[in-house]
Amino acid sequence: MANRITLTLDCADAKLLGDFWKTALGYVDVPPPAPFRTRAEWHASFGLPEDDSVDDLAWLCDPEGIGPRLSILKVPEPKRAKNRLHIDIRVPGHGTAEERWARIRAESERLVAAGGAVLEEFEGHHVVMADPEGNEFCVAAAASEA
């Protein structure tokens, strides 16, 4: 059995990034482990310092269980450089190159409305974007169509 991965983003505002990435990926909050009813209840069970808030992190998952989990953690230091690892959002669908590019552009516009920013477009191929805290990611056609 292969190991599974969780991607982790450091941030200044876990709620902001959690909401953005749920919108971007169609992910949902990871439910708390049994027997806890809420994530706050589970978090409190660790006896962490009072300034360690459940709002300082977000755990997201693919509701179908296919994609990797995404952890978003508040850290004190700011982002300093370009990501060495980034997320590619692959837009599904078939059709001509023009139709695929139109879907890529529509998705990037949807993500701008959700708080993202376009950094650069590679016409007909992909769009480089940033989430609300500047983490880079790309929007492109599904890998089988690239």
Score class of each variant (00 low, 15 high):
41 E>S: 07
24 A>E: 01
29 D>Y: 06
19 D>N: 14
85 L>W: 07
31 P>L: 06
68 P>F: 07
57 L>T: 12
68 P>I: 05
71 S>E: 14
45 S>D: 11
44 A>M: 09
40 A>M: 12
52 D>A: 15
65 G>Q: 11
36 F>M: 13
53 S>E: 11
38 T>M: 09
43 H>K: 04
14 A>Q: 01
21 W>C: 04
75 V>K: 07
64 E>H: 11
87 I>T: 03
26 G>W: 02
85 L>I: 15
38 T>H: 12
33 P>D: 13
66 I>Y: 12
63 P>K: 08
63 P>S: 07
81 A>V: 11
70 L>I: 04
62 D>L: 00
43 H>P: 01
60 L>E: 09
50 E>F: 06
26 G>S: 03
44 A>W: 11
84 R>V: 09
19 D>T: 12
72 I>G: 03
27 Y>W: 13
91 V>E: 14
76 P>L: 00
82 K>E: 13
24 A>W: 02
46 F>Q: 11
60 L>C: 10
27 Y>E: 01
90 R>I: 05
86 H>P: 00
73 L>H: 04
85 L>G: 01
45 S>G: 12
17 L>C: 01
42 W>R: 10
84 R>D: 11
49 P>C: 10
86 H>Y: 03
51 D>F: 14
59 W>K: 07
61 C>T: 08
67 G>R: 08
14 A>G: 03
27 Y>T: 02
74 K>T: 07
21 W>H: 03
71 S>R: 00
37 R>Q: 14
28 V>R: 08
